[in-house]
Design a protein around this nucleic acid. Sequence first.
DNA 1: CTTGACCTTGGATACAACTCCAAGGTTTAT
DNA 2: ATAAACCTTGGAGTTGTATCCAAGGTCAAG
Lengths: 167, 167
Amino acid sequence: MYRIGELAQLCEVKTDTLRFYEKHGLLSPSSRTDSGYRIYTENDAERLRFILRAKAVGFTLAEITELLSIELDKSNWACADVKGLVDDKLANVEAKIAELNHFQLSLQRLSQACCGGPESAEHCSILEALESSTDNIRCENHSHTHDDVQFTKNCQNKAVSKNSKEK
Amino acid sequence: MYRIGELAQLCEVKTDTLRFYEKHGLLSPSSRTDSGYRIYTENDAERLRFILRAKAVGFTLAEITELLSIELDKSNWACADVKGLVDDKLANVEAKIAELNHFQLSLQRLSQACCGGPESAEHCSILEALESSTDNIRCENHSHTHDDVQFTKNCQNKAVSKNSKEK
DNA sequence: CTTGACCTTGGATACAACTCCAAGGTTTAT
DNA sequence: ATAAACCTTGGAGTTGTATCCAAGGTCAAG
Ligand SMILES: [Zn+2]
Ligand SMILES: [Zn+2]
Ligand SMILES: [Zn+2]
Ligand SMILES: [Zn+2]
């Protein structure tokens, strides 16, 4: 049994957030004291943890509400319904992962094309990529001195072609 | 030279969005007609494309503002600065992916524990998991008839232990 | 000269998900 | 018995990213 502040501290959220969740039907305390203080059970805490995990990975509160609301009305749902909902969310998550993977790839390509060195960004390949097409990223080729291995470690093509020591 | 509607159509955004970007300092038309119409140059169009590309790889407008300020003033920035922004964003995206993968796993476990059949969800293992700990998911065991292979295909443990035909 | 498509502005609205505030009631420790 | 720390409510404010609206100005065609 927790009071609102205890549960908040336990789960590292603000009391306001718990009241907000209550107002929006995600999590209500199992009871109240005579004086009106909210009393949360361990069960409530578990439910909160689920909400927080779902939230942490990008589920909206609306989606979480949908997922949790079935519980109110179990007998009017079939396993197929419940599983369907979960599978919808799963597809949702997988779509988000795919989208982020796309971002990741784009960012990795941008990152890898830039030497990350201390010289002027005038020829920075990241900026050049953003200036033109992102599909067409070239390893940058500074006009200034740029042979130092320290600054070409991320720039394989250039490192190989310019200071061909290895070969 | 484009009027706002032309540029909007060209880049597939709304005129409101262009005015919004202007208000927030991301993109201002190079000039105005005598009557006050915004006039965008090809240069402005390029800048807009820069913004849209950066958005497409996951940067927020605030981050794009930062990128644009570097763009305008390249020579006072180093590759390291630019790459730093990209790498921060990359770390950010990767953290989000990791979280999503975690939740994907949870959802997959939920999904797999449920038979997905047409009978009441009263004993649905998904709901049971939501009610208590999600770490402790058991394959559901309906009290009603549930031997049909059709409804147990996703429920390996039960399928094996209950109707032990295979073995 | 009228019509319709386009443009202007400032301000309103939307949505998510909080976050803070004011004014007051309750508990607990000393 | 009083202060500190907690709790209550309703409502307002915040951030990001737009999107919409009203009232009116501009422009080209017929
Ligand atoms: Zn460089
Ligand atoms: Zn660079
Ligand atoms: Zn079932
Ligand atoms: Zn089930």
